[in-house]
Amino acid sequence: MESLPSSSFWQGKRVFLTYPTSFLGAWTALCLQHLGAQVFGFSETAGKNPNLFDLTNLAQSISMTYGDLRDEESFRQVLQFAQADVVLHLGETGLLTEAEKKPLDIIAKSVMGTATLLELLRETASVRSVVVVSSDKVYERNPENKALVETDKVGAGDLLPTSKLCSELIALSYRQTFFNPDKYNKHKIAVASARLGAGIGGGDFSETSLIPQAVQSFLNKKNFEIRNPNSVRPWIHVLDQVSGILKLAEALYVKGPKLSPTYNLGAAEYESVGEVMKEFSQIWGTTWSSVSESAGKGSLSLHGQMSSELAAKDLGWKPQWDLTKALAETAKWYQGYYSGRSSVGELTSVMRGYF
C-alpha cells in the first residue's frame, strides 16, 4: 500500500475545501494543486497578516469564495458551482485565547457550519468522499498516559477542541442518519473524521506558537525563554498531516463505507519543548542564540499520545519525516522567507522533496 497520496488519483479531481485561509488549509490547498487537483475554497478572509494563504496568492490560483459557513444560500451556490468529488472540511481554526474571547462565535461556526455543510451535501450528487478534521484533544484525560485509540472515551475540555468535537459528532451523526454505510448504494457518500494535533512547518505566523516565537527570537538575536521546557508535546510536520487527510479522502472515495468512521493522524515523536527548541536553534545555525527557562513558570501542559495504528493498517499512512527533518525544513522555509525569497518557490521545493 502506498504511504503517500496518489498523484494519479488526485489528478483532475475537483476538491471543495473549507478554511483554506488557515495554516493547515493553505498547505492542503497547495498540496492538492501540486498533485493536480482543481481546488474550490470557501471561508472568511484570513484574520491576520502575514499569513500563508495570502503570501502564496492562493486566492488567485484556486476558485475562492469568501463567506460565512452558516450562510446557507451562499454555501449552496458555491457547492453547486464546484460539483466536487471530494470535500475536506477543516473547520473553524484559531487559538484557545481567541476562542475564549468569542466563545459563542466559535461554537456557532463549528456546530452550524458543519451542520450546514452536511445538510447541503444531501443535495449535492457529485460528492463521494467527505473528511471532517477534528482535534487530538477531544479525548478524556488519560492518567496512565497510554496511547489513545479511536474507541477511547471523548469528552469536554477546553473550548476550541470541544467545538471541534461537536463538529465531529455532527458529521458522524449525519453519517449514521443520512449517509449510513448500509445504504451506500443509494447515497454514494462516504464520511469520516480525522483527529489531528498542531503541526509545524513554514508559514505559521501565530504569535503564541513556539516555532514562530523562536524564529523571531533568532532573527532579533534575543534569548528565547520557554515557560515549560519539560512539557512533552507531539511533533509532526504539517505535510504529514495533509498527507494523512488526503490518504483518508482517497480511501473513502475508493473503498466507500468499508472504513472506520474516525482515524487518528498523530505524531510519531513526543519530545520536550526545551529539547526541541534547542535542536531547532542548532538547525537554524546560530552561535549566539540560546534557549532558557522563563523565570515565571506556567503550569505543565498535558498532551495525550494518540495511536495511529488504525490509519497505518487501513490507509497505509504514517509520518514520513522524523523530527530533525521536520525542523530542518521548517527552518529552511523561514530563512528563505526572511531573506526575501519567494514563498511559493520555497513551498514548492518542500513539497517536491516530500512527494
Rank of each mutant, 00 (worst) to 15 (best):
W333K: 02
T114V: 03
L35C: 03
Q11T: 11
H34Y: 05
D322H: 09
A267D: 14
L172K: 04
N223S: 15
L30K: 00
S299A: 12
V111L: 13
F9C: 03
G203V: 03
S209T: 12
T116L: 01
L239E: 00
D105V: 14
A249H: 08
T286L: 07
K258C: 12
V242G: 01
K102R: 15
S272I: 04
L35Q: 01
Q80F: 07
V276M: 07
N228G: 04
M306T: 12
S292C: 07
L52E: 03
S135M: 06
I200P: 10
E98D: 13
D68F: 07
S3Y: 11
E329Y: 08
G266S: 13
V130G: 04
T65S: 11
A99T: 12
E92M: 06
S126D: 08
S43Q: 09
S206M: 03
L104F: 13
T324C: 01
F224Y: 12
D54L: 00
Y139T: 10
S74K: 14
V133Y: 05
D136I: 05
P181E: 14
Q80Y: 11
G94I: 04
I283V: 08
L265H: 10
L120K: 09
S74W: 04
A326H: 06
A82Q: 02
K258I: 14
L239D: 02
A108N: 14
V138G: 05
G345A: 10
E329P: 03
W288H: 14
T93E: 12
E293M: 05
L315D: 12
Q176E: 14
K278G: 01
I283E: 07
D85I: 05
T177W: 12
G285L: 13
S61M: 10
A171C: 01
